[in-house]
């Protein structure tokens, strides 16, 4: 570990809407190191999925990257030609999505969809790709792989489809796997199986994983390092251990407190008051201040920078600099 595989610096993404432009990712910086698993955590609307789509260069047509650098190995992805970008997509960097039910094309067989990236990136013949596809399906725990290759997506369960998606994403041995909420849409038992699958992948290969989730259980299970996002910004960066041991940002603390603990008897679960602000009506100053229990006049006035706490642990809160915050 140590060598940087992907570096994102000051990424800014905006969307064109009927009411003008809305910035959903505002100056996000982080890096993914070789072989590590990085979790990006945040509520819905915090910009975590948009960040991943921007990295892949597959933002919806009304979205665009307006600022920042995305460097993969030595390549500047933002200035890469469309053709060279396509060579990276699905090959060096691949992605699995939240909704396995709709992420596969309903009119093509599993085999067709699995062979596609293999024939495209590895230059395999149809027959070779078929054999590799079967092998990939076996690797993700599908026993009757030959049969599944001939099936259509609607003939498979959600868990099976997510396995197929993972097999597809891993088929060209990517250096980085982006998993956007890969377990959210699945049953709890299936969630556990998919997580095991990802952990095995992490342990058995040198593939870096960037996992996007709002589930802190998933984070604890898989991640080496964590980025907490709020309202399009990174609000805290830490190793998984540091984050759970000593969260610095009030938002992170709130997230951790809202996780029910199995031994505590409580009448009411904790939740952070309010909701993520609408990107069109971002609060002044610190974007979290309207929901922050420590928020005061200064928080309304000043937009805080990311502040190093200890080593690589950083958080975006002005109270930290003044040591006013006891968390």
């Amino acid at each position: 570990m140590g060598e940087e595989l992907l570096k994102v610096d000051g990424l800014k993404v905006r969307f064109k809407t009927d009411d003008g432009y809305i910035t959903t990712v505002n100056g996000v910086s982080f890096s993914v190191k070789k072989g590590e698993t990085l979790a990006i955590v945040g509520e819905s609307g915090s910009g975590k999925s948009v960040t991943s789509l921007a990295l892949m260069g597959i933002l919806p047509p009304n979205g665009e990257v307006v600022d920042g650098d995305v460097t993969y190995k030595d390549k500047d992805l933002r200035t890469l030609s469309k053709k060279d970008y396509r060579k990276i997509r699905g090959n060096d960097i691949s992605m699995i999505f939240q909704e396995p039910m709709t992420a596969l094309n309903p009119v093509f067989t599993i085999g067709f969809q699995l062979r596609e990236p293999l024939m495209l990136h590895e230059g395999l013949s149809k027959k070779e790709a078929q054999a590799r596809g079967v092998e990939m399906l076996r690797n993700v725990g599908i026993s009757d792989a030959e049969k599944v290759m001939g099936r259509f997506p609607h003939q498979l369960s959600g868990g099976m489809r997510q396995r197929v998606m993972i097999a597809m994403a891993l088929s060209c041995n990517p250096e980085l796997l982006i998993a956007d909420e890969p377990t959210t849409a699945l049953d709890v038992t299936i969630q556990a199986q998919i997580l095991t699958l990802l952990r095995n992948l992490k342990e058995s290969s040198n593939t870096s994983i960037m996992i996007i989730t709002h589930d802190l259980g998933v984070v604890a299970e898989l991640a080496d390092r964590v980025i907490v996002m709020y309202a399009g910004e990174v609000v805290e960066v830490a190793t998984v251990h540091e984050l759970f041991e000593s969260p610095q940002h009030p938002y992170t603390k709130g997230l951790l407190d809202s996780m029910p603990k199995i031994h505590d008897v409580v009448n009411e679960l904790y939740s952070i008051e309010g909701t993520v602000p609408n990107p069109a009506e971002m609060p002044q100053g610190c974007k979290f201040h309207p929901r922050c229990p420590f928020g005061d006049e200064e928080c309304v006035q000043t937009h805080p920078n990311l502040l190093n706490v200890k080593g690589d642990h950083a958080a975006r809160c002005i109270k930290l600099a003044k040591k006013e915050l006891v968390v």
Binding site: M56, I58, R86, N105, P117
Partner: peptide
């Protein structure tokens, strides 16, 4: 699934 197809390159 169109996003998936694009993500395959």
């Amino acid at each position: 699934f169109i996003r998936t197809a694009r993500s395959k390159g």
